[in-house]
Design a protein around this nucleic acid. Structure first.
Lengths: 216, 216
DNA sequence: CCTCAAAAGTAGACTTAGTGTACTATTAAT
DNA sequence: ATTAATAGTACACTAAGTCTACTTTTGAGG
């Protein structure tokens, strides 16, 4: 007697040759695109060229990356809820703001690209690409916005009323974003990460002081 | 003897039949576009249709509005440096934050569309259009970003060090933006502006308290 | 190993935003 | 009235993204 349940049980999505192949192809396409963008600029490379270079059809490329911007920015999604996770994982008794400050300072120390304080040529070239392309900047803002949502939710689940949680999240995420931009700008101007480091620490500390104690 | 200076002296740009005609045509095109967008949605109306309805060629339309989004959002540009102007025009001795708070509360009272607290059907439809269209939201963010620049500049010319000015500007403008979103959301859900008013005042006051005294 | 249904991929036409170019029509000043 | 600049148009072009119908690959079961 034949089985009435569907023959293909999706599993958890990580098993099977098919899944691994898809993942690899996605990697290939993304890497090809970024390489070409870094070489010639986002607007100077067409989807058609990327697809051809990566050895897939245009249509296939679009089935992996729904928009041209996604070819560059998928990796940003990883960081989108970093702040929320930091707050969630904080030591008991520690305030959210204190946890974020601590995390941010250690991120600077380890030159986390996310802080803007990283002068690795490939990483700073990637940042330059993103920040010099309007449509990419717009997309980054979307991720930032999701980061705000995530943090607000986390703060709210932590005793804050919804209004305060939301306002705090907006302030915090946007300030962190601004600090990263400042660091990146210095790196762009040729400063080394090591040179910039002390000032980056100072700026971050000052920013958290302002967040905590207000603008006055 | 012929005159060696250029024959056409531009003047201040407001004189002449030509200038007035251009201004009127621009109005016509913009109004036509917004009417059509409100009726069918931003993505459902093509540039070709708008140009045809407004009685101009596609190319002419693009010479007035370089992108489809600009057909909707040019009027946002007016508000882009409102915060900076408010700070500049404040009474002597008043702190920037105090001036902005005062301005914002009076803007709520007069139901300034800019605060999100306006239930006029045409205005709320316009907001809904903008907020339900991704590409328009991205464009709004650009204006917001310019508002930050303007305010930062104003604060800096007012004694703040550049870092503090910049961080304060980011916080203030983004918080105001968020407050407007909240009000708008309530209006969208059918609440009247009058109904929402007390809570809007409360939220704004709370937001300025947080900005001034910190998140703690 | 063979079969076969589902999933992945492809080809190519289509829509639409936006640009470049070469031409025509207005306008305003002499 | 002449004329040079400016505004507007027609038309062709590029490129992103979608739709549809077709082919290939894969992996599970017998």
């Amino acid at each position: 007697m034949e089985n009435l349940v569907p023959k293909v049980v999706p599993g958890d999505g990580t098993d099977g040759l098919r899944e691994r192949k898809k993942l690899r192809l996605r990697e290939t396409i993304g890497a090809t695109a970024i390489r070409m963008f870094l070489e010639s600029g986002f607007d100077q490379v067409s989807i058609t060229e990327i697809a051809h270079t990566a050895g897939v059809s245009r249509r296939t490329l679009f089935s992996y990356f729904p928009a041209k911007e996604d070819l560059v920015l998928q990796r940003f999604a990883d960081h989108e809820d970093e702040a929320a996770r930091t707050v969630r994982a904080r030591r008991t008794g520690q305030s959210p703001l204190k946890a974020l400050r601590e995390f941010q300072l250690s991120a600077l120390q380890r030159r986390d690209p996310y802080t803007g304080l990283n002068d690795d040529p490939e990483i700073s070239a990637f940042f330059r690409l993103v920040l010099s392309t309007e449509s990419l900047q717009a997309r980054v803002m979307r991720y930032t916005s999701r980061g705000i949502d995530a943090l607000a939710k986390e703060l709210q689940g932590n005793g804050s009323d919804p209004l305060t949680a939301r306002l705090a999240a907006v302030q915090i995420i946007m300030v962190l974003h601004e600090l990263a931009l400042m660091n990146h700008e210095c790196i762009l101007n040729g400063q080394s990460a090591a040179d910039r480091y002390p000032e980056a620490i100072r700026a971050t500390s000052r920013a958290f002081d302002l967040l905590q104690a207000g603008l006055k």
